[in-house]
Design a protein around this nucleic acid. Sequence first.
DNA 1: TTAATTGTACTAGTGCATATAATACAGTTT
DNA 2: AAACTGTATTATATGCACTAGTACAATTAA
Lengths: 120, 120
Amino acid sequence: MNINIDYQTRIPIYEQIVREIENLVTLEILKPGSQIMSIRDLACSLSINPNTVKKAYDILENKKIIVSKSTKGCFIADDVTSAKNSKINEIVSNINELIKALENLGLSKEDILKKLVLKD
Amino acid sequence: MNINIDYQTRIPIYEQIVREIENLVTLEILKPGSQIMSIRDLACSLSINPNTVKKAYDILENKKIIVSKSTKGCFIADDVTSAKNSKINEIVSNINELIKALENLGLSKEDILKKLVLKD
DNA sequence: TTAATTGTACTAGTGCATATAATACAGTTT
DNA sequence: AAACTGTATTATATGCACTAGTACAATTAA
């Protein structure tokens, strides 16, 4: 469970934790039902405050990506397919917005396609 | 010179102003050499503080997109082609990063291409 | 049983960036 | 002379992220 935090960016730490764990789940590095690091341990290993990790875990639980069991620990949810799909859809719609922005700047679809890393 | 500000987002107002003017310039709605709204007028029309507009204009001047002449006003720079190109490059690299993220999630380049709005 | 660990909950405080408020100045324009 | 320009300064308010410290009940392991 390798989580990298960038302390320079404007993106808050708790949000970076959410994203990292989401990625580990979609990459199936963290398997459904498996236990993840405790709030205190992760806070300690990242040298941050436990409250910050708690906030990230709360968001993940809200997204049905993890389940936290009192006095037991936190676990990856049994079914994470919906989480994975919504993550993909989120990224795709972000890309499509940027494509629209490029079109507004006068680029054709062919022009755009040439600039993207989509060739095999 | 229509500038829309979203007060809900986490993106600061001054940064939104920068982006909007950059867009108007690249879209050639604001022509090189033409005068733009004064700091006070824009602040008034957006119902925000002049200092916030000043900050945005400082950034734009730093980017060589506008030129401010004391006691005269602020003007679009004579040459904005480099600004336009760097804007395009910025968006393209953002898209390519997102594409890499999708690949990390297990999608092939073909899969990704199908999801994008790049067909004629 | 005891000690350590778990998630949970709460209050208080700090630091920082954003944004506002209120002036003031020097030069230009009308 | 009045209204406008960009520039500059100081002080203040605000929200958010984050930290600090503490406490509780339940579980686990020695």
